[in-house]
């Protein structure tokens, strides 16, 4: 990367506090495709000059997949360990790169002693656009391009956030097309509830293929995502349908970075 990503440990050593902590998440840390999104979120934070930091190696899984799979012990172990770290650093505000981390920290950590203001990166992007700090200029033009947005369950139905990601796309002056099942009626990509980590039960179709069929019906040039797990499922679906050349699956952070030439 062209700039150094600051860690909490470094800021603490320098006697400083960040405005916001960027919670990267496991997918964002290890999954190659999601790492790209992570770096793009950092580029946005760096570009607008927000004082931010990441936990680096001090971050651990929020416990979301353990909790959805039914292992409350492991979830609470992870949660309490993370809360201890976050509280020790006096964290007040967190932006996450993943709707699952977002939901878990925002809704399930307070009851275990970790109360923070938590936003998802698409909300941050929307805020920055509203504040005039981010535009869609200086980079790739999405003007008139056909984009369809896939609602991640834990951002949409789980937390009622439907508008922020769409606002972040509206600024592109692109042609936003909705899938038949969208917003509160959006169809899951198939990865939630710990499905990401197992083979699906037997059935007649994979869920991500069902979703991609629906997305392709809108004839999009881009499918916009806001979740690293959706990203995997949707990309796999596009690959399976042999549409990789025509249709690109991009995270809203990636689209923002491209549009601004960051």
């Amino acid at each position: 990367m062209e700039f150094k990503v600051p860690t909490m440990a470094e800021l603490m050593a320098a006697g400083e506090e960040p405005e916001i902590l960027f919670w990267v998440g496991c997918a964002g840390s290890y999954d190659e495709r999601a790492q790209k999104i992570t770096r793009d979120i950092c580029k946005i934070l760096h570009h607008v000059g927000i004082k931010y930091a990441v936990l680096g190696t001090e971050e651990g899984c929020t416990g979301d997949p353990a909790k959805r799979a039914g292992n409350e012990f492991l979830f609470q172990m992870q949660a309490m360990t993370n809360i201890e770290v976050l509280n020790a650093y006096n964290i007040k505000k967190i932006v996450t790169g993943c709707p699952h981390c977002f939901n878990t920290i925002k809704n399930e950590y307070p009851g275990l002693g970790g109360t923070y203001e938590v936003i998802h990166h698409t909300q941050l992007i929307q805020d920055l656009i509203n504040e005039g700090k981010l535009k869609a200029e200086g980079g790739e033009s999405f003007k008139g391009k056909k984009i369809t947005y896939h609602d991640p369950c834990y951002l949409g139905r789980g937390n009622g956030i439907y508008e922020a990601p769409r606002k972040a796309l509206e600024v592109l002056d692109a042609q936003l097309v909705e899938m038949k099942r969208c917003k509160s009626n959006g169809l899951c990509c198939g990865a939630g509830g710990a499905q990401m980590f197992k083979e699906p039960e037997k059935g007649k179709k994979d869920i991500n293929v069902e979703r991609i069929d629906e997305a392709l019906e809108t004839n999009p040039q881009f499918i916009a995502a806001g979740c690293p797990f959706c990203m995997t499922m949707l990309s796999d679906g596009v690959k399976l349908k042999d549409k990789e050349q025509e249709v690109k699956v991009l995270d809203i952070a990636e689209i923002t970075v491209r549009a601004n030439g960051l």
Partner: peptide, 21 residues
């Protein structure tokens, strides 16, 4: 998750490697 702090089999020491690219 229990051993590596992540749902995949990666070392916790490598968690911040994404920033090196």
């Amino acid at each position: 998750i229990e051993n590596n702090q992540a749902p995949w089999k990666y070392s916790p020491a490598d968690r911040f490697n994404w920033a090196n690219e």
